[in-house]
Write a protein that binds this DNA or RNA. Sequence first.
DNA 1: CCAAAAGTGTTAGGAGTACACCCATGG
DNA 2: CCATGGGTGTACTCCTAACACTTTTGG
Lengths: 222, 222
Amino acid sequence: MESLRVTVDIVIFTLRDGILQVLLVKRGVPPFEGQFAIPGGFIRQDESLEDAALRELYEETGVRNVFLEQLYTFGDPKRDPRGRVVTVAYYALIASDKLSLVAGAEAAEAQWSLANEPPPLAFDHKSILEFALERLRNKLEYTTVGFQLVPEKFTLGELQAVYEAILGRQLDKRNFRRKIALLGILKPLREWRHTGRKPAQLFRFASARFEKLKDKGILFPF
Amino acid sequence: MESLRVTVDIVIFTLRDGILQVLLVKRGVPPFEGQFAIPGGFIRQDESLEDAALRELYEETGVRNVFLEQLYTFGDPKRDPRGRVVTVAYYALIASDKLSLVAGAEAAEAQWSLANEPPPLAFDHKSILEFALERLRNKLEYTTVGFQLVPEKFTLGELQAVYEAILGRQLDKRNFRRKIALLGILKPLREWRHTGRKPAQLFRFASARFEKLKDKGILFPF
DNA sequence: CCAAAAGTGTTAGGAGTACACCCATGG
DNA sequence: CCATGGGTGTACTCCTAACACTTTTGG
């Protein structure tokens, strides 16, 4: 029976300062020494693909319980010059307020980069990142994935900034708010964020309704 | 380094008599002996995942140049009782007029079944089939995959039947025709299909415009 | 002449988009 | 007092969905 080496790679996104960022690690050994790569690792004999991805994600970022979805499996025989490696790619979304722990054990060489203008990447990781960005942009329009990138308490302006950062264009404030309101999943809080201007009301997601919409599409064209 | 056995499985759909059908093979050996399974096989060291899927598809059906798209990778450690096998699932769409050659070398034990009411399936193949059906239904609504299931020359009624069979509901004839017409990819022929009632005009796709619309999924040249 | 599928337009309602002004605050 | 982002409503357009009758043929 043929056996192949199989890895999981995880494209980890977050949004900071209104910019979509991706976690990359610097390679310390050839090939592509010194270049950046998408974090990943081999799958163990006894763990599922998703467990492997979760483990890798935890090792790199110290977070659990975030959005994680299988992206695509890349298996060109020449994608790794050392020999054949098939990789099952995942992507994850982490809200900025869960990110304090970025100094995990393996995180020494990890750093956040601009998702839309990444540095040169090892292997076929440029393709993988582009694939992830494409999926993210598409899913943004017909699912609620975008909500994963916002802190637990957030303003409508912050939520809109998520959409604008990923879609790469500006959205109309009034239309955006009307559509979000129509979903009926926001719970207004009696708290306001004071940022030096007019205070903005904070919201959180009403989890019961949120679960219903999760991943299934109440539609979202912007 | 950990190595895993990796297969490709292909969910092969066609539409016959207005019913969506899926190609299944009867297992001749344990486990699940005598039960049906989705066709598949191991990936060779030197072939890409897609090449493996194409090879498998050709061995089972004798067809090439049909729609083929990666579906999802299934890797639960317990999905195969004999030991760990990861499978990269693909799905393919074959128009009925390409299907004359179903008697391929390995096709002895292959047969078409109702996609929506399949017999009991081996391994986790029920999940894989359901995943494929879900993908197909979703893509039907925002891509041109449905066009892959219709013969080279077809009537508007036949095209509509494809959509109705996959979506599992009836569509309004006038609205359907208007939408298709808006795409501007149909080339009316000076031929009519005579089926015992009022003859229906035949169409084919205008390939130039069709290419423009083709989904990012891999659409092989006609 | 009858059964069965082909073919053809109009209308009403909902969703999407474009658009401008006042407000509250911190500095 | 002013710069900055917060917050709000309306009007037009376009897409979608609902809906019924005539035509053509083979039997």
